[in-house]
């Protein structure tokens, strides 16, 4: 009973080799744009008042040099970033021109690249502290909410009795934005921090539970039949059949939960715990320190984007089997 056909598709590997042979035109062009940006920053006199102009030019130049130096040896992924390197270069040139050089977008509402860098650098201690606090609240709240949500969803998907009791509760509490519970939460919880953790967890819990339940309930009966005839008990059916089969759906819930966590995080920091990036943004806006506000927003992008990217990586690893693999 030998399997005769055994063609491994070599096509993707060949295509990759072809791509590697091409010079990294886009990346080199990107380096050129950044060089122009650096020259513009350093040589054209500022019309707006701005510190750190030389540092900004230096950093833009560093982007250009790094890109050009690494371009020939770049991996496939970085090579694909070439057009983006150029596009961000254009953005930098536009931004620099519109603010520091031509003064079209005026302070205090707008700030130049050097203004943003200055804000990041000058207030680094407080920004770092706020970033750390937000990260901590996000990690604790999200982990609690995700774990509870997955467990609730599994229980509801598996047991009709749990579903009977939990469904109305889920459907009455869940759709209300977690922030709406804030006054009650501040009243009930001993500290505002524990209240904020609860709010974030609640926001994550709802979508995770709904999607996990749907995923578990949709698992094909055939999988259970097969496992049962192979000697599986109910523990095996839950953890080794239902959960892995529902994982794609569970991840959808986890992604929705992460989005809800960001939203709730900012509200909780604003009104509850009085620290973290959400609070910092509101506080700086209060006395019109817009460059600092932009600095905090930049860090917010790093935080949320980083968390999203991390979850994507975890999903891709766990759901490796879903990827379009080579077929025989």
């Amino acid at each position: 009973m030998a399997v005769t056909q055994r063609e491994r598709a070599a096509a993707p590997a060949r295509a990759a080799a072809r791509r590697r042979a091409r010079p990294p035109v886009a990346a080199l062009f990107g380096a050129l744009v950044w060089t122009a940006g650096a020259a513009l920053t350093a040589l054209v006199p500022n019309r707006q008042e701005a510190e750190h102009t030389a540092v900004t030019a230096g950093l833009a130049g560093a982007v250009a040099v790094l890109t050009a130096a690494l371009a020939p040896a770049l991996t496939e992924r970085v090579r694909r970033a070439g057009p983006w390197i150029a596009a961000t270069g254009y953005w930098f040139v536009f931004w620099e021109l519109a603010t520091a050089k031509l003064d079209l977008l005026e302070p205090p509402y707008f700030t130049s690249p050097q203004g943003l860098l200055a804000a990041l650098w000058d207030d680094r201690a407080l920004l770092l502290d706020s970033f750390g606090n937000s990260l901590k609240l996000l990690v604790i709240g999200y982990s609690l909410g995700a774990a509870t949500g997955v467990l609730t969803g599994i229980a509801m998907g598996w047991s009709p009795r749990v579903h009977y009791w939990a469904h109305p509760v889920l459907m009455s509490i869940g759709p209300v934005p977690a922030a709406a519970w804030l006054p009650l939460i501040l009243l009930v919880f001993p500290t505002s921090y524990s209240g904020a953790v609860f709010m974030v967890a609640l926001a994550v819990w709802f979508p995770t539970t709904v999607l996990t339940r749907a995923g578990v309930a949709a698992v094909s009966r055939r999988y259970y039949d097969v496992a049962q005839t192979l000697g599986a008990g109910s523990g095996y059916l839950v953890w080794r059949v239902a959960v892995p089969a529902a994982l794609p759906q569970i991840f959808v819930g986890l992604f929705m939960g992460l989005g809800a966590a960001f939203l709730t995080l900012v509200v909780a920091e604003l009104l509850g715990v009085k620290n973290g990036l959400g609070w910092y943004i509101q506080w700086t806006k209060g006395w019109a320190a817009y460059p600092r506000m932009y600095a905090a927003i930049t860090l917010m992008i790093v935080l949320c984007g980083g968390a999203m990217a991390l979850l994507f990586r975890v999903r891709n690893r766990v759901l490796r089997w879903q990827k379009d693999l080579v077929r025989w």
Binding site: S220, R222, Y223, D225, V226, T229, L230, V241, P244, A245, L247, L319, W321, Q322
Partner: peptide
């Protein structure tokens, strides 16, 4: 043991 028309292999 039972074998179905659909192989029902666990895709994961």
């Amino acid at each position: 043991a039972l074998v179905f028309q659909d192989p029902t292999l666990f895709p994961w």
